[in-house]
Amino acid sequence: MTQSAPSTQFPLLRGAVGRWARGWNNIGRQAQFYGLVIAGTKEVLVRYKAELIRLVAQMSLGIGALALIGGTVVIVSFLTISAGSLISIQVFSQLQEIGVDALAGFASAFINVRIVAPLVAGIGLAATIGAGATAQLGAMRISEEIDALEVIGIRSIAYLASSRVLAGIIVVIPLYCLTCLMAFVSTRVGTTAVYGQSTGVYDHYFYTFLNPWDLLWSFLQAITMAVVVMLVHTYHGYVATGGPAGVGAAVGRAVRTSLVAAVTVTLFVSLAIYGQSGNFNLAG
């Protein structure tokens, strides 16, 4: 009698070990790619400044038909207006039930700065700029344009991926400022104009609890989120395979991953900065 090979005796175990090994290999490839992208940012600033400027203009205001509506700026503005209006609706009605509706200004200064503004900026970056970057790099990969860049002596990771990460960081700076302003304005208008709260009461509690340090930490959170989102999207676009259908699948995977990463960054950065207590005192 002949003995069967171990692979045929334990097919489920072999499959589980294979999936585990492929998962770790994938993590290693991503970590290597992210390291090369971050290392290539210096080369972008030295050799590819024109490409960086072009990408910043494309990401912020859009190109072609998208430029007519302002590109990412307008899209993120509408997202933030919706989020700020939802805060004014939910917070004011909930606070009114317990008789402290005057604290609606405090809720705006607390929630918009720490959660809504950076998270909406990250989601807008992932859904517009990030998805576009994945589609562009994926199309270049399947049409062998990336291989052509390597042949003529251009470092494709620095030229294509590092430049997009830097452009995303540059674009998120005014984008975050816009999201903050739109969130503040929409919440204030919803609370004072729709629900009829006094503007003086709202402004008093808003400015009392608006901490400038929270704005700085929130800005740092938005920058961190932009780096993570752009790294994820450039990786999935750079390694896309399988033709146009494969590029579409890569965009879907990148958007799902970046949205999870945005929420995860918000959670861990908030815990690292503010702690479990929130680092505030409801007084004054």
Rank of each mutant, 00 (worst) to 15 (best):
4 S>Q: 13
5 A>M: 11
9 Q>K: 10
9 Q>C: 07
10 F>D: 11
15 G>I: 05
20 W>N: 09
28 G>A: 15
32 Q>D: 13
36 L>V: 06
39 A>C: 06
41 T>P: 02
42 K>W: 11
43 E>Q: 14
46 V>N: 11
47 R>T: 01
59 M>C: 02
59 M>F: 12
66 L>G: 01
73 V>W: 15
85 S>E: 00
88 S>T: 04
106 F>I: 03
112 N>A: 14
118 P>K: 08
129 I>N: 07
133 A>P: 00
135 A>V: 01
137 L>K: 01
138 G>A: 04
138 G>I: 10
156 S>L: 03
156 S>P: 01
157 I>W: 11
159 Y>F: 15
162 S>A: 08
163 S>G: 03
165 V>M: 02
166 L>K: 01
167 A>C: 05
168 G>N: 03
170 I>R: 00
173 I>L: 08
179 T>K: 10
180 C>Q: 13
183 A>C: 09
190 G>M: 03
192 T>H: 09
195 Y>K: 14
198 S>I: 07
199 T>L: 10
205 Y>H: 13
205 Y>N: 10
208 T>D: 12
209 F>E: 00
211 N>W: 10
214 D>L: 09
225 M>C: 15
227 V>I: 15
237 G>K: 06
238 Y>H: 09
241 T>L: 12
241 T>H: 12
243 G>Y: 05
244 P>W: 02
253 R>S: 12
254 A>D: 02
256 R>C: 08
261 A>F: 12
264 T>Q: 05
266 T>I: 07
267 L>G: 08
269 V>M: 15
271 L>C: 03
280 F>P: 01
282 L>E: 00
